[in-house]
Design a binder for these strands. Structure first.
Length: 382
DNA sequence: TCTGGGGTCCTAGGACCC
DNA sequence: TCTGGGGTCCTAGGACCC
Protein backbone atom coordinates (compact mmCIF):
# COMPACT_ATOMS: atom_id res chain seq x y z
CA UNK A 1 0.00 0.00 0.00
CA UNK A 2 1.66 3.18 -1.05
CA UNK A 3 1.13 6.73 -0.02
CA UNK A 4 0.01 7.51 -3.53
CA UNK A 5 -2.85 5.12 -3.47
CA UNK A 6 -4.43 7.00 -0.63
CA UNK A 7 -3.96 10.41 -2.12
CA UNK A 8 -5.50 9.08 -5.27
CA UNK A 9 -8.67 7.97 -3.50
CA UNK A 10 -11.59 9.39 -5.40
CA UNK A 11 -13.80 10.87 -2.74
CA UNK A 12 -11.53 13.35 -1.10
CA UNK A 13 -13.26 16.68 -1.20
CA UNK A 14 -11.82 19.84 0.23
CA UNK A 15 -13.73 22.96 0.98
CA UNK A 16 -12.72 26.27 2.48
CA UNK A 17 -9.83 26.91 4.83
CA UNK A 18 -9.37 25.19 8.15
CA UNK A 19 -7.82 28.01 10.16
CA UNK A 20 -10.66 27.93 12.69
CA UNK A 21 -11.69 24.31 12.34
CA UNK A 22 -10.01 22.25 15.01
CA UNK A 23 -12.48 19.43 15.54
CA UNK A 24 -12.06 16.20 13.65
CA UNK A 25 -14.69 13.52 13.47
CA UNK A 26 -13.24 10.18 12.39
CA UNK A 27 -15.47 7.34 11.28
CA UNK A 28 -14.32 3.99 9.90
CA UNK A 29 -15.98 2.80 6.73
CA UNK A 30 -17.95 -0.43 7.28
CA UNK A 31 -15.76 -1.13 10.28
CA UNK A 32 -16.56 -4.75 11.14
CA UNK A 33 -16.66 -5.83 7.52
CA UNK A 34 -13.35 -4.06 6.86
CA UNK A 35 -11.72 -5.83 9.79
CA UNK A 36 -12.92 -9.18 8.48
CA UNK A 37 -11.66 -8.40 4.98
CA UNK A 38 -8.19 -7.99 6.39
CA UNK A 39 -8.13 -11.73 7.05
CA UNK A 40 -10.02 -12.61 3.87
CA UNK A 41 -8.42 -10.41 1.18
CA UNK A 42 -9.78 -12.68 -1.53
CA UNK A 43 -13.23 -11.31 -0.75
CA UNK A 44 -12.32 -7.71 -1.53
CA UNK A 45 -14.63 -6.23 -4.11
CA UNK A 46 -17.38 -8.77 -3.38
CA UNK A 47 -20.49 -8.31 -1.21
CA UNK A 48 -19.72 -9.32 2.38
CA UNK A 49 -22.17 -9.29 5.28
CA UNK A 50 -21.13 -9.57 8.91
CA UNK A 51 -23.86 -11.01 11.09
CA UNK A 52 -25.13 -14.17 12.70
CA UNK A 53 -25.96 -16.50 9.87
CA UNK A 54 -28.24 -18.84 11.80
CA UNK A 55 -31.86 -17.78 11.42
CA UNK A 56 -32.40 -14.76 13.63
CA UNK A 57 -30.11 -11.82 13.72
CA UNK A 58 -29.46 -8.60 11.94
CA UNK A 59 -26.71 -7.32 9.69
CA UNK A 60 -23.94 -5.93 11.86
CA UNK A 61 -21.89 -4.51 9.02
CA UNK A 62 -21.89 -4.68 5.24
CA UNK A 63 -19.27 -3.75 2.66
CA UNK A 64 -20.02 -1.09 0.12
CA UNK A 65 -20.28 -3.85 -2.45
CA UNK A 66 -23.07 -5.36 -0.36
CA UNK A 67 -24.74 -1.99 0.04
CA UNK A 68 -25.21 -1.83 -3.68
CA UNK A 69 -27.83 -4.52 -3.12
CA UNK A 70 -29.63 -2.32 -0.63
CA UNK A 71 -28.14 -4.14 2.35
CA UNK A 72 -27.42 -2.00 5.38
CA UNK A 73 -26.64 -2.47 9.07
CA UNK A 74 -29.63 -3.30 11.30
CA UNK A 75 -31.46 -5.02 8.46
CA UNK A 76 -32.53 -8.57 9.28
CA UNK A 77 -30.18 -11.25 7.99
CA UNK A 78 -32.97 -13.08 6.19
CA UNK A 79 -33.89 -9.99 4.21
CA UNK A 80 -30.24 -9.28 3.41
CA UNK A 81 -29.71 -12.79 2.11
CA UNK A 82 -32.85 -12.53 0.03
CA UNK A 83 -31.55 -9.33 -1.56
CA UNK A 84 -28.13 -10.77 -2.26
CA UNK A 85 -28.03 -14.56 -2.07
CA UNK A 86 -24.42 -14.55 -3.27
CA UNK A 87 -23.08 -12.49 -0.40
CA UNK A 88 -20.47 -14.04 1.89
CA UNK A 89 -21.62 -14.16 5.49
CA UNK A 90 -19.02 -13.86 8.24
CA UNK A 91 -19.83 -14.35 11.91
CA UNK A 92 -18.88 -11.31 13.98
CA UNK A 93 -15.74 -11.70 16.08
CA UNK A 94 -16.07 -9.00 18.69
CA UNK A 95 -12.76 -9.58 20.45
CA UNK A 96 -11.00 -8.90 17.17
CA UNK A 97 -12.89 -5.62 16.72
CA UNK A 98 -12.01 -4.59 20.24
CA UNK A 99 -8.31 -5.15 19.55
CA UNK A 100 -8.43 -3.12 16.33
CA UNK A 101 -10.38 -0.40 18.12
CA UNK A 102 -7.65 -0.15 20.76
CA UNK A 103 -4.99 0.21 18.09
CA UNK A 104 -7.06 2.91 16.37
CA UNK A 105 -7.20 4.79 19.64
CA UNK A 106 -3.41 4.66 19.84
CA UNK A 107 -3.35 6.35 16.44
CA UNK A 108 -5.77 9.04 17.61
CA UNK A 109 -3.67 9.70 20.69
CA UNK A 110 -0.57 10.03 18.55
CA UNK A 111 -2.30 13.06 17.01
CA UNK A 112 -3.67 14.75 20.14
CA UNK A 113 -4.40 13.98 23.78
CA UNK A 114 -7.92 15.37 23.36
CA UNK A 115 -9.74 12.31 22.11
CA UNK A 116 -13.38 11.52 22.76
CA UNK A 117 -14.16 8.00 21.62
CA UNK A 118 -17.80 7.59 20.59
CA UNK A 119 -17.85 3.92 19.72
CA UNK A 120 -15.49 1.19 18.52
CA UNK A 121 -14.99 2.90 15.18
CA UNK A 122 -15.66 6.57 15.75
CA UNK A 123 -14.13 9.45 17.67
CA UNK A 124 -13.85 13.20 17.99
CA UNK A 125 -10.40 14.75 18.11
CA UNK A 126 -9.59 18.30 19.12
CA UNK A 127 -6.34 19.11 17.30
CA UNK A 128 -6.06 22.80 18.20
CA UNK A 129 -2.91 22.04 20.19
CA UNK A 130 -1.31 19.90 17.50
CA UNK A 131 -0.92 22.50 14.76
CA UNK A 132 2.68 23.37 15.52
CA UNK A 133 3.77 19.78 15.73
CA UNK A 134 1.69 18.07 13.07
CA UNK A 135 0.35 20.73 10.74
CA UNK A 136 -3.09 22.03 9.88
CA UNK A 137 -6.19 20.05 10.84
CA UNK A 138 -6.56 19.07 7.19
CA UNK A 139 -3.02 17.73 7.13
CA UNK A 140 -3.64 15.91 10.38
CA UNK A 141 -6.81 14.44 8.89
CA UNK A 142 -4.83 13.14 5.91
CA UNK A 143 -2.16 11.69 8.19
CA UNK A 144 -4.82 9.99 10.24
CA UNK A 145 -6.46 8.39 7.22
CA UNK A 146 -3.11 7.32 5.90
CA UNK A 147 -1.98 5.77 9.19
CA UNK A 148 -5.26 3.91 9.64
CA UNK A 149 -5.08 2.56 6.12
CA UNK A 150 -1.42 1.55 6.23
CA UNK A 151 -1.69 -0.05 9.65
CA UNK A 152 -5.18 -1.60 9.61
CA UNK A 153 -6.09 -1.67 5.95
CA UNK A 154 -9.31 0.14 6.71
CA UNK A 155 -10.50 3.24 4.94
CA UNK A 156 -12.11 5.91 7.04
CA UNK A 157 -13.78 9.25 6.59
CA UNK A 158 -12.83 12.44 8.36
CA UNK A 159 -14.81 15.61 8.89
CA UNK A 160 -12.98 18.79 9.87
CA UNK A 161 -15.06 21.63 11.29
CA UNK A 162 -15.29 24.21 14.06
CA UNK A 163 -17.82 22.17 16.09
CA UNK A 164 -18.53 18.54 16.82
CA UNK A 165 -21.94 18.64 15.22
CA UNK A 166 -20.67 20.00 11.92
CA UNK A 167 -17.61 17.73 11.98
CA UNK A 168 -19.91 14.73 12.25
CA UNK A 169 -22.11 15.94 9.40
CA UNK A 170 -18.97 16.48 7.36
CA UNK A 171 -17.55 12.99 7.90
CA UNK A 172 -20.89 11.47 6.95
CA UNK A 173 -20.92 13.59 3.85
CA UNK A 174 -17.36 12.52 3.02
CA UNK A 175 -18.20 8.80 3.14
CA UNK A 176 -16.87 6.49 1.93
CA UNK A 177 -13.16 7.04 2.15
CA UNK A 178 -13.06 10.82 2.09
CA UNK A 179 -12.15 13.95 3.97
CA UNK A 180 -14.25 17.07 4.07
CA UNK A 181 -13.33 20.41 5.61
CA UNK A 182 -16.08 22.81 6.57
CA UNK A 183 -14.90 26.29 7.50
CA UNK A 184 -16.87 28.41 9.99
CA UNK A 185 -18.29 30.79 7.38
CA UNK A 186 -19.79 27.88 5.63
CA UNK A 187 -21.53 26.38 8.60
CA UNK A 188 -24.76 28.30 8.30
CA UNK A 189 -24.74 28.04 4.55
CA UNK A 190 -24.29 24.32 4.84
CA UNK A 191 -27.08 24.04 7.35
CA UNK A 192 -29.16 26.19 5.03
CA UNK A 193 -28.94 23.40 2.55
CA UNK A 194 -30.98 21.43 5.03
CA UNK A 195 -33.45 24.30 5.46
CA UNK A 196 -32.14 25.00 8.92
CA UNK A 197 -32.70 28.72 8.33
CA UNK A 198 -36.38 27.87 8.44
CA UNK A 199 -35.84 26.19 11.78
CA UNK A 200 -33.87 29.15 13.08
CA UNK A 201 -36.72 31.52 12.28
CA UNK A 202 -39.39 29.27 13.64
CA UNK A 203 -40.76 30.21 17.08
CA UNK A 204 -39.05 27.93 19.55
CA UNK A 205 -42.34 26.85 21.07
CA UNK A 206 -43.59 25.61 17.75
CA UNK A 207 -40.40 23.64 17.38
CA UNK A 208 -40.79 22.28 20.89
CA UNK A 209 -44.23 21.02 20.08
CA UNK A 210 -42.96 19.36 16.96
CA UNK A 211 -39.83 17.75 18.39
CA UNK A 212 -40.03 17.80 22.15
CA UNK A 213 -38.17 20.18 24.43
CA UNK A 214 -34.66 18.75 24.43
CA UNK A 215 -34.22 18.15 20.76
CA UNK A 216 -35.95 21.40 19.77
CA UNK A 217 -33.76 23.55 21.98
CA UNK A 218 -30.65 21.76 20.87
CA UNK A 219 -31.53 22.08 17.22
CA UNK A 220 -32.55 25.69 17.65
CA UNK A 221 -29.18 26.48 19.19
CA UNK A 222 -27.43 24.57 16.46
CA UNK A 223 -29.44 26.36 13.83
CA UNK A 224 -27.81 29.57 15.00
CA UNK A 225 -24.41 27.93 14.81
CA UNK A 226 -24.21 27.72 18.58
CA UNK A 227 -22.64 24.53 19.79
CA UNK A 228 -20.50 25.19 22.79
CA UNK A 229 -19.84 21.57 23.61
CA UNK A 230 -16.14 20.93 23.77
CA UNK A 231 -14.43 17.65 23.12
CA UNK A 232 -14.55 15.71 26.37
CA UNK A 233 -11.42 13.63 26.51
CA UNK A 234 -12.78 11.30 29.18
CA UNK A 235 -16.31 10.24 30.06
CA UNK A 236 -16.40 7.89 33.02
CA UNK A 237 -18.27 4.70 32.25
CA UNK A 238 -21.68 4.43 33.85
CA UNK A 239 -22.31 0.75 33.42
CA UNK A 240 -20.68 -2.40 32.13
CA UNK A 241 -22.69 -5.33 30.88
CA UNK A 242 -22.92 -8.24 28.52
CA UNK A 243 -25.88 -10.04 27.07
CA UNK A 244 -26.39 -12.92 24.74
CA UNK A 245 -29.13 -14.10 22.46
CA UNK A 246 -29.13 -17.88 22.24
CA UNK A 247 -29.27 -19.59 18.90
CA UNK A 248 -31.94 -21.82 20.48
CA UNK A 249 -34.34 -20.78 23.23
CA UNK A 250 -33.46 -22.25 26.65
CA UNK A 251 -36.06 -23.52 29.09
CA UNK A 252 -33.96 -25.49 31.60
CA UNK A 253 -33.15 -23.39 34.67
CA UNK A 254 -29.79 -25.14 34.87
CA UNK A 255 -28.82 -24.11 31.33
CA UNK A 256 -29.97 -20.54 31.88
CA UNK A 257 -28.05 -20.24 35.15
CA UNK A 258 -24.97 -21.54 33.42
CA UNK A 259 -25.24 -18.69 30.91
CA UNK A 260 -25.83 -16.21 33.72
CA UNK A 261 -22.67 -17.45 35.41
CA UNK A 262 -20.74 -17.11 32.16
CA UNK A 263 -21.96 -13.53 31.69
CA UNK A 264 -21.28 -12.68 35.35
CA UNK A 265 -17.73 -13.90 34.88
CA UNK A 266 -17.34 -11.83 31.72
CA UNK A 267 -18.70 -8.67 33.30
CA UNK A 268 -16.68 -9.11 36.49
CA UNK A 269 -13.50 -9.55 34.46
CA UNK A 270 -14.22 -6.37 32.52
CA UNK A 271 -14.95 -4.49 35.75
CA UNK A 272 -11.64 -5.53 37.28
CA UNK A 273 -9.75 -4.74 34.09
CA UNK A 274 -11.25 -1.24 34.21
CA UNK A 275 -10.54 -1.02 37.95
CA UNK A 276 -14.19 -0.37 38.67
CA UNK A 277 -16.70 -1.73 41.14
CA UNK A 278 -20.46 -1.41 41.03
CA UNK A 279 -23.43 -1.33 43.40
CA UNK A 280 -26.39 -2.13 41.18
CA UNK A 281 -26.62 -5.51 39.50
CA UNK A 282 -29.15 -5.88 36.69
CA UNK A 283 -30.44 -9.10 35.21
CA UNK A 284 -32.18 -8.90 31.84
CA UNK A 285 -34.31 -11.71 30.47
CA UNK A 286 -35.95 -11.80 27.05
CA UNK A 287 -38.57 -14.45 26.36
CA UNK A 288 -39.33 -16.25 23.13
CA UNK A 289 -42.10 -13.73 22.33
CA UNK A 290 -39.48 -10.95 22.59
CA UNK A 291 -41.02 -9.45 25.72
CA UNK A 292 -38.19 -8.33 27.94
CA UNK A 293 -37.91 -7.76 31.66
CA UNK A 294 -35.16 -6.49 33.91
CA UNK A 295 -34.66 -7.07 37.59
CA UNK A 296 -32.10 -5.22 39.62
CA UNK A 297 -30.62 -5.15 43.08
CA UNK A 298 -28.71 -2.29 44.60
CA UNK A 299 -26.36 -3.06 47.44
CA UNK A 300 -24.48 -0.85 49.88
CA UNK A 301 -20.93 -1.91 49.15
CA UNK A 302 -19.59 -2.02 45.58
CA UNK A 303 -18.42 -5.39 44.21
CA UNK A 304 -16.37 -6.67 41.30
CA UNK A 305 -16.13 -10.38 42.04
CA UNK A 306 -17.51 -13.09 39.79
CA UNK A 307 -18.91 -14.98 42.75
CA UNK A 308 -20.63 -11.91 44.24
CA UNK A 309 -22.17 -10.82 40.97
CA UNK A 310 -23.33 -14.32 40.18
CA UNK A 311 -24.87 -14.74 43.63
CA UNK A 312 -27.06 -11.70 43.00
CA UNK A 313 -27.98 -12.43 39.39
CA UNK A 314 -28.79 -16.00 40.38
CA UNK A 315 -31.10 -14.80 43.16
CA UNK A 316 -32.77 -12.30 40.82
CA UNK A 317 -33.36 -15.09 38.33
CA UNK A 318 -34.71 -17.50 40.91
CA UNK A 319 -37.07 -14.82 42.21
CA UNK A 320 -38.75 -14.80 38.80
CA UNK A 321 -39.97 -18.31 39.56
CA UNK A 322 -40.07 -19.26 35.92
CA UNK A 323 -41.40 -22.70 35.20
CA UNK A 324 -39.85 -23.97 31.99
CA UNK A 325 -40.46 -20.67 30.24
CA UNK A 326 -38.62 -20.31 26.94
CA UNK A 327 -35.83 -17.77 27.29
CA UNK A 328 -34.13 -16.26 24.27
CA UNK A 329 -31.67 -13.86 25.88
CA UNK A 330 -30.07 -13.15 29.21
CA UNK A 331 -27.97 -10.16 30.14
CA UNK A 332 -25.94 -9.10 33.15
CA UNK A 333 -25.08 -5.47 33.75
CA UNK A 334 -23.43 -3.63 36.63
CA UNK A 335 -24.28 0.03 37.27
CA UNK A 336 -23.47 2.72 39.83
CA UNK A 337 -19.81 2.30 39.14
CA UNK A 338 -17.06 3.66 41.32
CA UNK A 339 -13.33 3.53 40.90
CA UNK A 340 -12.07 0.48 42.73
CA UNK A 341 -9.32 2.59 44.25
CA UNK A 342 -11.72 4.95 45.95
CA UNK A 343 -14.58 2.51 46.38
CA UNK A 344 -15.30 2.10 50.05
CA UNK A 345 -12.48 -0.13 51.14
CA UNK A 346 -13.53 -0.13 54.73
CA UNK A 347 -15.92 -2.94 53.99
CA UNK A 348 -14.65 -5.74 56.11
CA UNK A 349 -13.40 -8.36 53.76
CA UNK A 350 -13.75 -11.61 55.57
CA UNK A 351 -11.04 -14.16 54.97
CA UNK A 352 -13.16 -16.09 52.51
CA UNK A 353 -13.91 -12.92 50.58
CA UNK A 354 -10.21 -12.16 50.41
CA UNK A 355 -9.68 -15.64 49.10
CA UNK A 356 -12.11 -15.07 46.26
CA UNK A 357 -10.45 -11.77 45.36
CA UNK A 358 -7.14 -13.58 45.07
CA UNK A 359 -8.70 -16.21 42.86
CA UNK A 360 -10.29 -13.59 40.59
CA UNK A 361 -7.01 -11.77 40.30
CA UNK A 362 -5.08 -14.91 39.47
CA UNK A 363 -7.72 -15.78 36.91
CA UNK A 364 -7.42 -12.34 35.29
CA UNK A 365 -3.67 -12.78 35.04
CA UNK A 366 -3.94 -16.21 33.50
CA UNK A 367 -6.55 -14.94 31.02
CA UNK A 368 -4.27 -12.10 30.04
CA UNK A 369 -1.40 -14.50 29.44
CA UNK A 370 -3.08 -17.53 27.98
CA UNK A 371 -6.37 -16.20 26.64
CA UNK A 372 -9.90 -16.15 27.97
CA UNK A 373 -10.31 -19.88 27.72
CA UNK A 374 -7.50 -20.51 30.18
CA UNK A 375 -9.46 -20.00 33.36
CA UNK A 376 -13.18 -20.52 33.79
CA UNK A 377 -15.42 -21.33 36.68
CA UNK A 378 -15.64 -25.11 36.87
CA UNK A 379 -19.25 -25.16 35.68
CA UNK A 380 -18.26 -23.58 32.40
CA UNK A 381 -15.69 -26.19 31.47
CA UNK A 382 -17.25 -28.81 29.24
C1' DT B 1 -39.75 -6.89 9.30
C1' DC B 2 -39.79 -11.80 13.36
C1' DT B 3 -35.87 -8.66 15.57
C1' DG B 4 -27.54 -8.50 17.83
C1' DG B 5 -24.87 -6.25 21.44
C1' DG B 6 -23.07 -2.46 24.08
C1' DG B 7 -24.50 1.40 25.94
C1' DT B 8 -27.11 6.13 27.84
C1' DC B 9 -30.95 8.71 29.31
C1' DC B 10 -35.64 9.46 30.80
C1' DT B 11 -39.90 8.55 33.25
C1' DA B 12 -42.84 6.97 36.77
C1' DG B 13 -44.14 4.83 40.94
C1' DG B 14 -42.97 3.54 45.51
C1' DA B 15 -40.29 3.42 49.85
C1' DC B 16 -38.45 6.12 53.11
C1' DC B 17 -36.85 10.20 55.68
C1' DC B 18 -37.38 14.71 57.82
C1' DT C 1 -52.85 9.18 64.14
C1' DC C 2 -56.61 9.09 58.23
C1' DT C 3 -52.26 12.29 56.57
C1' DG C 4 -48.66 17.91 53.84
C1' DG C 5 -44.50 18.76 51.17
C1' DG C 6 -39.84 18.22 49.74
C1' DG C 7 -36.16 15.35 48.76
C1' DT C 8 -33.45 11.07 47.72
C1' DC C 9 -32.86 6.50 46.34
C1' DC C 10 -34.33 2.30 44.21
C1' DT C 11 -36.68 -0.42 40.68
C1' DA C 12 -38.58 -1.36 36.11
C1' DG C 13 -39.29 -0.43 31.54
C1' DG C 14 -38.77 1.89 27.29
C1' DA C 15 -36.78 4.95 23.75
C1' DC C 16 -32.92 5.71 21.43
C1' DC C 17 -27.96 5.66 19.72
C1' DC C 18 -23.89 3.52 17.37
Amino acid sequence: MTHRQILKLPHIELTGDDSNSNILHVDMDAFFASVELKDRPELRGTPVIVGHSGGRGVVTSATYEARKFGIHAAMSMSEALRKCPGATVIEPSHEKYEAVSNRLQDIYYSMTPLVEPLSVDEAFLDVSGSRKLLGTPTEIGHKLREKVFLQENITCSVGVAPTKFIAKLASTRAKPDGLLVVSPEEVLARLGLFKVSDIANLPLNTLRRALGDGLAEHLHELSWGRDERSVEPYEPEKSIGNEETFSKDLDEAEDILREILRLSEKVATRLRAAELMGRTIVLKVRFSNFSTITRSKTITDPIDGTKDIYAITKALFENLKLDRVRVRLVGVRVEKLEEAETASRQLLLGESEKGWREIDKASDKASARFGDEAVKPARLID
